[in-house]
Design a binder for these strands. Structure first.
Length: 89
DNA sequence: AGCCTGACAGATA
DNA sequence: GTATCTGCCAGGC
């Protein structure tokens, strides 16, 4: 479950729905819940919403980390389509 | 089992 | 652009 998030390369991000799809099971909510409960020790800041907005919990911190990792930003949002990771590295 | 809540997503107005 | 509705899965009571 969380390994999917751990696999997200530097400079890329994945939406909750993408993680769920990548895992092949669950739903964005399940991913969110799982991360909220067991999300310790994983680059949770690389998980964003489908809009490209960082985590509702720590948007500022996540945005800062993402910027630091050269994640393509589009204003306050992450540039999905470019930063979105398919899972093929 | 049923009911409520939550780090979500997509459609519609 | 925002606001609302519905579907989804997991966890707590």
């Amino acid at each position: 479950m969380l390994d999917a998030v751990e696999r997200i390369p530097r400079g890329r991000v994945m939406s909750y729905g993408d993680v769920a799809e990548y895992l092949g099971r669950g739903s964005p909510r399940a991913v969110g819940t799982a991360l909220a409960r067991y999300g310790g020790g994983v680059p949770w800041h690389r998980v964003v919403t489908s809009d490209g907005r960082p985590n509702p919990s720590d948007p500022a911190g996540a945005a800062a980390r993402l910027r630091r990792e050269r994640v393509p930003f589009a204003g306050e949002r992450v540039d999905m389509g470019r930063a979105r990771w398919d899972g093929r590295t």
